[in-house]
Design a protein around this nucleic acid. Structure first.
Length: 122
DNA sequence: TTTAGGG
DNA sequence: CCCTAAA
């Protein structure tokens, strides 16, 4: 009875989703599902969008304190806490894809395009 | 059929 | 995750 119930997204799924968005772009769930998720029968466009939504929420929380909201580290329902590098990638992707509110874009002024310090090889 | 948003 | 609306 493998209906459509509990399907905990694993780290591999998240990585594939992030890599797919990073390569093809957010919103191309159909292509991502056809290419990166060709090995899986489940996970449709709706599921991909839903996971991305949840990923964004996980990426925007906890990093900078807005104005003083829920502290105490709200870890109520966190199945498998996504690693830092993944969350960082999601944030960068969301920022470059223009789906992130300008609330978090409050860093670097003379940093130009280079994210690293001495960008010799780019 | 796929994308986008809400429940 | 499931449902609905628009393209």
């Amino acid at each position: 009875m493998r209906r459509k119930h509990h399907r905990p997204w694993t780290l591999s799924e998240v990585v594939k989703l992030v890599e797919g968005v990073a390569k093809y772009g957010a919103g191309r769930w159909s292509e991502i599902k056809r290419l990166a998720f060709a090995s899986y029968s489940y996970r449709t466009s709706v599921d991909l969008k839903d996971k991305w939504r949840n990923l964004l929420r996980a990426s925007f929380v906890q990093l900078p304190a807005e104005k003083g909201m829920q502290v105490q580290s709200s870890r109520k329902h966190a199945s498998i806490p996504i690693p830092a590098p993944i969350l960082l990638r999601v944030r960068e992707l969301a920022e470059m894809q223009s789906q992130v509110p300008p609330s978090f874009s409050a860093s670097k002024f003379a940093g130009h395009t280079g994210s690293d310090r001495s960008s010799v090889h780019e």
